[in-house]
């Protein structure tokens, strides 16, 4: 049977990663406001604590204290279920990401990954596709036309862009020959980052990640000018907070997955020499810090794009997805296949 000593490292890792995810999501809201302010020549929130560092806590407290409104004609159970599914699904994605190389503590080696499943990428896909239900259920249960429109837009957008994302990933898999995220990272040791082999695939993946995370320029499901608040129009208090939180967690996880798939994850040039120098405890932590830095860069990139590019129109979104990205993905697939055949 499984003993506590065997599960304990895994449980600690799960708690740490969940806490980290929540913390990053919390501070992403702060970073978003700061980035927006800086790009617009303002300074952003700077009152709560030094430099506004406690602003997310203040926001969180405000969310908890706000009045909870549940529309009379809504479906109460589904109304509560919606945000719960959204946040659960986005938290579950982080499970398969390898956060660092194996770490050696007290003479034992532990992996810095909660589970290494053979089909890690597919798992991510499955969880993301379940996440749509959070939006659809919430939007429908609100019994509000704007919410319903937002929900339908969100799901059709996610389904359409999942296709081209899948095509981008298939091309990547042709290069790597495995679906396990850990193996993909191990293959990119040193400078062999997949971005060098799959630049088009990366751009495809990046655009689709924006669409999947409902970020500008593809934030049609919640665009204020047309749909009030989109699928979360009727939500208030912490349930609204859950939806917003889920969005930021999605952004964090997709940034982490992007760094893992295309930018070498926790690998960095000269890694072996550094590892020999600092030993098996600090080395993995540096690897983790490198992955975290890459992830933070992508989170910044998400925000940077948000405050630069205006929102697409709905028909433009669908045109881009079906007539632009999917053919491009297929071409990329064919080219990659030919290259793999030729070089083997």
């Amino acid at each position: 049977m499984v003993t506590l000593a065997q599960v304990l490292p895994a449980i600690i890792l799960i708690v740490v990663i969940f806490a980290l995810t929540m913390l990053v999501a919390l501070y992403s809201t702060f970073a978003e406001r700061k980035v927006a302010a800086f790009i617009q020549d303002r300074v952003g929130p700077n009152r709560a604590g030094p430099g506004g560092i406690f602003q997310p806590l203040a926001d969180g407290v405000k969310f908890f204290m706000k009045e909870e409104v549940i529309p009379v004609l809504s479906n109460k159970f589904l109304f509560i279920l919606g945000p719960s599914i959204a946040i659960t699904a986005s938290l579950m994605t982080g499970v398969v990401v390898p956060w660092g190389p194996d770490i050696t503590l007290f003479g034992k080696t532990y992996p810095l990954q909660i589970v290494d499943i053979e089909i890690g990428i597919l798992y991510v896909f499955a969880v993301v596709s379940v996440g749509i239900y959070g939006i659809m259920i919430g939007g429908w249960a609100s019994n509000n036309k704007f919410s319903l429109m937002g929900a339908i837009r969100a799901s059709s957008q996610v389904i359409s862009y999942e296709l081209s994302m899948g095509l981008a990933i298939i091309a990547l898999i042709m290069v790597t020959g495995t679906l396990s995220l850990r193996e993909i990272v191990e293959q990119q040791h040193g400078w062999h980052w997949n971005i060098l082999y799959q630049p088009v695939g990366f751009i495809l993946f990046l655009v689709c990640a924006f669409a999947e995370a409902n970020r500008t320029p593809f934030d049609l499901p919640e665009c204020e000018t047309e749909l009030v608040g989109g699928y979360h129009t009727e939500y208030s208090s912490m349930k609204l907070g859950f939806y917003l939180f889920a969005e930021y967690i999605n952004m964090f996880i997709s940034s982490a997955i992007m760094s893992t798939l295309y930018f070498g994850g926790y690998n960095y040039p000269g890694m072996d020499a550094v590892n020999e120098f600092v030993g098996p405890v600090i080395g993995p932590l540096i690897g983790f810090a490198v992955l975290f830095a890459k992830t933070c860069f992508f989170i910044f990139f998400f925000m940077w794009v948000r405050w630069t590019i205006p929102r697409f129109r709905y028909d433009q979104l669908m045109n881009l997805g079906w007539k632009g990205l999917i053919p491009l993905g297929i071409l990329n697939l064919i080219a990659t296949g030919a290259a793999v055949l030729y070089f083997k």
Partner: peptide, 21 residues
Amino acid sequence: AIASGMGITLRHFFKKKATIN
């Protein structure tokens, strides 16, 4: 076009802020 737009916003990122505290 996107790249040039992002260049513009990045330049503003480092500009002097107009805010008065």
